[in-house]
Write a protein that binds this DNA or RNA. Structure first.
Length: 646
RNA sequence: GCCAAUAUAGCUCAGUCGGUAGAGCAGCAGUUUCGUAAACUGCAGGUCAAGGGUUCGAAUCCCUUUAUUGGCUCCA
């Protein structure tokens, strides 16, 4: 039988197992191979016999699919350990995920940290025992019967959802049996290093109406060293957590009596956001945007027109009794659209008025569920660089491109561009309750956006059921230090609200036409952007955004006057300067300045005083030498210019 | 909203079996005026998140609420 391996053909005895095949190629491969891929499609276990000519690729821990099989087997080991220690625990599902795996259990008793330790010990025993994994298949009925006997109602439910004629595959290791499609490693001992990382609640089948199960997260690596390196990397990432350093460095804080998701921006945080806002507003002005300022709340009547009252009411803060129609009822705005559209509606518009690009630094309020808040990333009140472009159909593509270019320009300016991915967020035709409009309208808008994305060659993933209730979105996604993904920037084609609000323009032929609308943000919401920048730079903001750019310190009182002069000259020149003239614990102050991530430190003593010079150090503690004040300011100007706009 | 953990001085954290609160750093006052990672002396600082309960007695045990954290579900 002829087997193709990495492009080379080789002869093997018919019916040989993949593992033996690997062994004949090299002992090293036999050791490293985890599973095998047949004809570039199906991934099989190594114990399976190869019966005909085909192409085989051996997958190791280096391969994504190899790692998945490895961690999937690890999740079975976890389930086995839990069943050994808690026979009453019911098994749900346990897949491999990015960087690890989890398994969901239904159990009365909560998994405590001590319990987790005991489970890890049991896992160690199972790995040592090195049971072979065996695959067997049962007809649907028998599979259900087996799982009923074993008292696994969730498994029964899973099988029942499979097609009538499906042959169900199960895996057995020792006396532990699990419903599973595989593929798996040959034996439990193949898993070299496993660690349980955390316990969490998770709804059965991801539906909040279902019972909440207990999920144990874990990870597995092909060596103890790799596992330790991974755990250390996670710890390292957490040290950059904006929610920790943002509070430590006094960018923001929260107060119990103000409430969840309502952070206080301290002077540093407020300053950075002000700088970002100015940057965005100035850039938008250059690109032909008109500035608007619209109210933060409106009567429920407005939201009835826009559809928010039907589709977004739970997300809104309502002032007054929503159900009492005899009284006025207001709601804080969760989005700017229906407000900013009024600018267009102010008078009859001509086709010559289009494109009309409206921009606003807009504060929004969303009544997020109490468990959703996270530092500055997920809050209940936030300010976003919001905007709407009212367009003729022939302008849509060009303007969409303009929005994308603006977004990329902004991301580059703040240094986050390389960390972002693109997602084309579409509606779910099976979940029409959530959305306004007809399937035809959705089809049209999505096709339009799809073809623009193709034309602009934007690499993207597709997100089904991720659209806004009024239209599809291009979401620019970014991950925080915990690996959780959030939308930083969004560009949306909104075809429904224009209709609802009766927006029209008079075309060249004198006919009234419905405009297209692009709903977009330049830099997303400022709180979130600040959070991700803090994480990206570990608190060391680039000079153009640093709340304090220069700290002036004296080491003797004789330098105080000169320090004042330096500080005031630099302030007048537009730099953000802090002075500290306590001239004591200078080493401490320098360390503190570095901790606070202050880009430049100026140290003044008798010598500098006499020569009217400044001794300069950068944030890494490098001594840049003694220079004139003009030279320092020149240096700073250059850095600001290069960082802000590349 | 759901599952779990946590909440002690400005910060980081001790506080045993239930016996009424402790350290380091920061702060303040004085001394020191010194050249690069915490100078010396002293002082002050706490309804132990809030409320209720059990108890002779609660930071400690129980309940409720609030906030914080990690997930789930949602979402910028």
């Amino acid at each position: 039988m002829k087997i193709t391996l990495k492009g080379n053909q080789r002869e093997f005895e018919k019916g040989i197992s993949a593992l033996d095949m690997a062994g004949q190629i090299s002992q090293d491969l036999k050791k490293k191979a985890l599973v095998a891929k047949v004809n570039g499609e199906k991934v099989i276990e190594l114990w399976q016999p190869i019966k005909e000519d085909c192409e085989i690729e051996f997958l190791t821990f280096e391969d994504e699919e190899g790692r998945r099989a490895y961690r999937h087997t690890a999740s079975h080991v976890l389930a086995q350990a839990v069943k050994n220690l808690y026979p009453k625990a019911k098994l749900a599902i346990g897949p491999a995920i990015e960087n690890g795996f989890y398994y969901d259990f239904d159990m009365e008793e909560a998994f405590t940290p001590q319990a987790l330790q005991a489970i890890e010990k049991e896992i160690g025993r199972i790995l040592k025992k090195n049971d072979k994994l065996e695959k067997f298949e049962l007809p649907r009925k028998e599979a259900i019967q087996l799982m009923e006997e074993k008292g696994e109602p969730y498994k029964v439910e899973l099988i029942q959802d499979l097609p009538e004629d499906a042959v169900i595959s199960l895996y057995k290791q020792g006396d532990f049996v699990d419903l599973c499609a595989g593929p798996h490693l040959g034996s439990t001992g193949k898993v070299k290093a496993m660690k349980l990382t955390q316990v969490a609640g998770a709804y059965w089948r991801g539906n909040e109406k279902n019972k909440m199960l207990q999920r144990i997260y874990g990870t597995a690596f092909d060596s103890k060293e790799a596992l330790d390196a991974h755990l250390e990397a996670i710890e390292d990432a957490k040290r950059r957590d904006h929610n920790k350093i943002g509070r430590e460095l006094e960018y923001f804080t929260t107060v119990d009596t103000i409430g969840q998701g309502l952070p206080i921006l301290l002077p540093k945080g407020a300053r950075v956001i002000q700088l970002l806002q100015r940057f965005v507003e100035d850039e938008e002005q250059k690109r032909g945007y008109l500035l608007t300022k619209t109210p933060l709340m409106a009567k429920r009547d407005l939201y009835r027109i826009s559809g928010h009252w039907d589709h977004y009411r739970d997300g809104m803060f309502i002032l007054g009794d929503a159900d009492d129609e005899t009284k006025e009822c207001f709601a804080l705005r969760p989005m700017t659209c229906p407000f900013q559209y009024q600018v267009f509606l102010n008078r009859m518009r001509s086709y010559r008025d289009l494109p009309m690009r409206l921009g606003e630094t807009s504060t929004l309020f969303r009544n997020e569920d109490s468990g959703e808040m996270h530092g500055l990333i997920r809050v209940r009140q936030f300010t976003i660089s919001e905007g709407h472009l009212v367009l003729r159909p022939d302008q849509l593509e060009e303007e969409f491109k303009g929005c994308l270019e603006l977004a990329r320009f902004m991301l580059q300016a703040v240094g986050l561009e390389d960390d972002c991915t693109y997602r084309f967020s579409q509606w779910d035709p099976n979940n029409t309750k959530k959305y306004e409009g007809t399937p035809e309208q959705w089809e049209e808008a999505q096709n339009l956006m799809g073809s623009i994305l193709e034309k602009l060659d934007v690499k993207h993933t597709i997100g089904i059921d991720e659209a806004a209730f009024y239209g599809p979105k291009l979401d620019i996604q970014i991950k925080n230090v915990h690996g959780k993904e959030d939308t930083l920037i969004t560009i949306q084609i909104d075809m429904l609200l224009a209709e609802k609000f009766g927006m029209e323009y008079v075309d060249a032929d004198g006919q009234k036409r419905r405009p297209y609308i692009i709903h977009r943000t330049s830099l997303g919401c400022y709180e979130r952007t600040l959070a991700l920048m803090l994480e990206k730079f570990a608190g060391a903001m680039p000079l153009w955004l640093a709340p304090t750019q220069v700290e002036v310190m004296t080491i003797t009182d004789r330098a105080n006057d000169w320090a004042d002069e330096v500080a005031s000259t630099m302030s007048m020149a537009g730099f953000r300067v802090d002075t500290d003239k306590r001239n004591e614990k200078i080493g401490f102050k320098i360390r503190e300045a570095q901790m606070d991530k202050i880009p430049y430190m100026v140290v003044l003593g008798d010598k500098e005083c006499e020569d009217k010079m400044v001794a300069v150090r950068d944030r890494k503690g490098n001594n840049l030498g003694v220079m004139g004040l003009d030279a320092l300011m020149e240096l700073l100007h250059e850095e600001v210019d290069t960082r802000a706009i590349k």
